[in-house]
Simulated assay, not measured.
Amino acid sequence: MWIALLAVLAFNLLRFATIDYNAVGLDVVATWLLAGLFIGFAEEVLTRGFVVKLLRKAGNRELVVAVVSGTVFAGLHAGNLLSGQSVFATAFQLIYTFAFGICMYLACRLTGRLIVPILLHASTDPSIFLLTAHPTEGPLTAIAGLGNIVVIIVGLLSLFFIRGRAAVLQPDTALETQR
């Protein structure tokens, strides 16, 4: 299950390594990083913090917890269809965000800390948006561009390895789990 965490981190680093920082400017990079932190915090507290805690407290198996939290996370992105995004792009985004949500669930479950998926998420959005708008030329950029596909594959395959039940979360141990 650690592969999910490492895949997200590796492709985030690859994307950051292939951005044309001269073209984008420090102010835009800093703004995206700050926005990524706020978005990562809000979405992860809701889906991995609140939803996971409620589902575990209700006694659900971890596979159910992972799928429901991933589905809620994907659902948060369905509204992009209303903003004019194409049906195809939105459908792909929903598949990606579901699989990414599974990876973030695993980051939370494996580390027992909500801060890990928050920081992974906070680096994912800016790295994707900045690379899309300001890529450099070269083979590394092409490899970095495969990150979304890899996350989808890893996230979906990870579902086959999620087992058991985690302990009901206590207020003082926020997201610590039994493995």
Rank of each mutant, 00 (worst) to 15 (best):
G155I: 02
Q93T: 12
L120D: 02
L46G: 07
A23L: 12
S127H: 12
L63V: 14
E62I: 01
S123D: 11
G101M: 03
W2Y: 13
V64T: 15
V64E: 04
R113A: 13
F41I: 07
A17Y: 00
G164N: 09
A17P: 03
F73K: 01
Q178E: 15
G164R: 08
T90A: 07
V64R: 04
L156H: 09
V67M: 05
L26F: 14
I115M: 07
V87R: 08
F88E: 13
N80P: 08
Q178T: 15
W32H: 10
A66W: 09
L114S: 01
G84L: 06
A58M: 07
L82A: 15
G79H: 14
T31H: 11
A17V: 02
L82C: 07
V72Q: 08
F98K: 00
T173C: 09
V150S: 04
R179I: 11
I162Q: 03
G79L: 11
G36D: 02
V24K: 07
L146V: 09
K57F: 14
I102E: 06
F88Y: 12
T71L: 15
L81E: 08
V151D: 12
F129L: 12
V24N: 04
V51Y: 01
L146R: 08
A89D: 15
F73L: 05
V168A: 14
L54C: 13
A4H: 01
A78C: 07
P126D: 04
M104H: 05
L131P: 00
Q170G: 13
R165Q: 15
G147K: 01
F160A: 13
C108T: 15
